[in-house]
């Protein structure tokens, strides 16, 4: 899933400025699951802002709406009515949702309430970690299903560097060494010889091509 984190309240308030009617727009997918921008977080943020405005004697109306997915036109359209009333929209979706909303309602100012952090997984309650770098050229077949691009500090492709010690990364002892994990997994799979293969320089062009990346599937086009 896409993992995000709410921006600090001060930053959000500074962004909102003098807006008199604000719509806080939540998203019901990834950011709901990571407790950053779903219906519940929209409610909490709305209450906090109302309270803060009240304390300061500011007359600001705050509307709330959470749609199933802010990254698709059809769901974003459900916000039309409230959105047209608001003079500014604070989207608690990921960067994709913010942009989808902003593009669909081009005359409206849409602001990001979250920092979109990474593509990851909840490894335990309240803890998320990055699993995929969306590099566009998946190497998981030769790394035992563990991504060194996202999970090794140096995105190495040929095994652990000299800083791997006791399963940890030299950069931060709280970070597992991705290549130790790969090594153990390949051992478990009886595929240890895969570690001996020399992986050639990676084709990064699939990830950093000029302009935004794009997938076009003729079989799905109408």
């Amino acid at each position: 899933m896409i993992v995000g984190e709410q921006k600090p309240l001060e930053e959000i308030r500074a962004m909102l400025g003098d807006g008199k009617k604000i719509l806080i727009a939540g998203c019901g997918t990834c950011v709901t699951v990571c407790f950053a921008g779903g219906e519940k977080e929209v409610g909490i943020l709305a209450s906090t802002l109302r309270l803060a405005n009240q304390v300061e004697g500011k007359d600001v109306e705050i509307l709330e709406q959470t749609v199933k997915r802010q990254c698709e036109w059809e769901f974003v359209d459900e916000m039309k009515e409230k959105l047209e009333q608001a003079d500014v929209v604070l989207s608690l979706a990921c960067g994709i949702g913010v942009q989808t909303t902003a593009e669909r309602f081009a005359g409206k100012r849409v602001l990001p309430g979250l920092n979109t952090s990474f593509l990851g997984q909840p490894i335990e309650q309240g803890v998320w970690t990055e699993f995929c770098a969306a590099c566009g050229n998946c190497v998981l077949a030769v790394t035992g299903g563990i991504c060194p691009i996202a999970r090794c500090s140096k995105s190495l492709l040929n095994g652990p560097c000299g800083g791997s010690q006791a399963g940890k990364c030299e950069v931060d002892p709280s970070v597992p060494c991705a290549w130790q994990l790969v090594y153990d997994r390949l051992d478990l799979l009886a595929l240890q010889e895969t570690m001996e293969l020399i992986q050639p320089p990676k084709d990064w062009s699939a990830g950093y091509r000029p302009g935004p990346r794009k997938i076009e599937r003729e079989d799905l086009k109408i």
């Binding site: 095994g159 652990p160 560097c161 010690q165 090594y183 001996e196």
Partner: peptide, 21 residues
């Protein structure tokens, strides 16, 4: 470079082998 003291230890000579290859 090669580090005989890093982990996983059994891989260290193998890694040098990759560099030689």
């Amino acid at each position: 470079a090669s580090n005989p003291f890093a982990d996983p230890f059994p891989f260290r000579a193998v890694r040098l082998g990759k560099k030689v290859a």
